[in-house]
């Protein structure tokens, strides 16, 4: 391909400061145009670019640059992925549960000076765990709706669930709901009026989850 490049014109097209010279060397186009043209996969076809040898040379240069960029990124990512795990521990050791503790949910105790609570974050954790112990179910977001800080006040739970294809969704939702009631009864003194489970089908992910409300 280099033989197409007249040696004395090689850098004309890449002149950094003179747009007129750039356009003169690229049949009226600029590197920016040509780069956009490549971004569009050369569609719709533009004869004034496709039929210009100068543009063709510049496009090849741009494509070569892209290949080099891609190789560089791949090489860098591979190097970073091969690092030992200490950087992951360094991050995880420096984060605290504090940020997601949420509200405090009281537990009864006879002593007037006792304040026993389980955090909302811990409750969401056990709701996720409950789902994770079941097959083909993946629990996403969990919300506790209502005033959880008032003992005896009825609250409801909202859970987003992804179900693997082919599962009996109503049956799974019922099993999950039952398991969650048991878990909530074991770890909290919440009065749970309802557990609303919103099911997405895994096949519909990630773009547009087809949602199906289950009660």
């Amino acid at each position: 391909m280099t033989e197409l490049t007249p040696a004395n014109r090689r850098f004309l097209a890449f002149d950094l400061d003179d747009t007129e010279r750039e356009q003169a060397g690229l049949s009226g186009h600029t590197i920016e145009h040509l780069s956009d043209y490549l971004d569009r996969d050369r569609m719709p076809a533009d004869a004034s670019i496709d039929d210009s040898p100068d543009c063709e040379i510049a496009l090849r240069g741009l494509e070569r640059l892209r290949r080099a960029q891609r190789l560089l990124l791949e090489r860098d990512l591979e190097r970073e992925s091969r690092r030992d795990d200490s950087w992951v521990s360094a991050i995880l050791d420096n984060i605290t549960l504090e940020a997601h503790a949420g509200r405090e949910i009281p537990l009864a105790h006879p002593s007037p000076t006792a304040r026993l609570v389980v955090t909302e974050g811990a409750v969401r954790g056990i709701l996720r765990e409950t789902g994770d112990r079941m097959q083909n179910v993946f629990v996403g977001r969990c919300v506790l709706v209502g005033d959880v800080s008032v003992p005896g006040a009825p609250i409801s739970i909202g859970v987003d669930v992804t179900v693997f294809p082919g599962e009996n969704i109503p049956l799974l939702a019922e099993q999950l709901r039952h398991a969650m009631y048991v878990a909530l009864g074991k770890y909290t003194e919440l009065v749970v009026a309802a557990i609303d489970i919103t099911v997405s089908d895994l096949q519909a992910l990630p773009d547009a989850p087809a949602q199906e409300k289950e009660h």
Binding site: E104, T113, A114, R115, L116, V117, V118, A122, G125, E129
Partner: peptide
């Protein structure tokens, strides 16, 4: 004299 003894369960399992 004790004003309060608080126990927070922050994580289960």
């Amino acid at each position: 004299p004790v004003a309060q003894i608080a126990v927070i369960v922050a994580r289960i399992g």
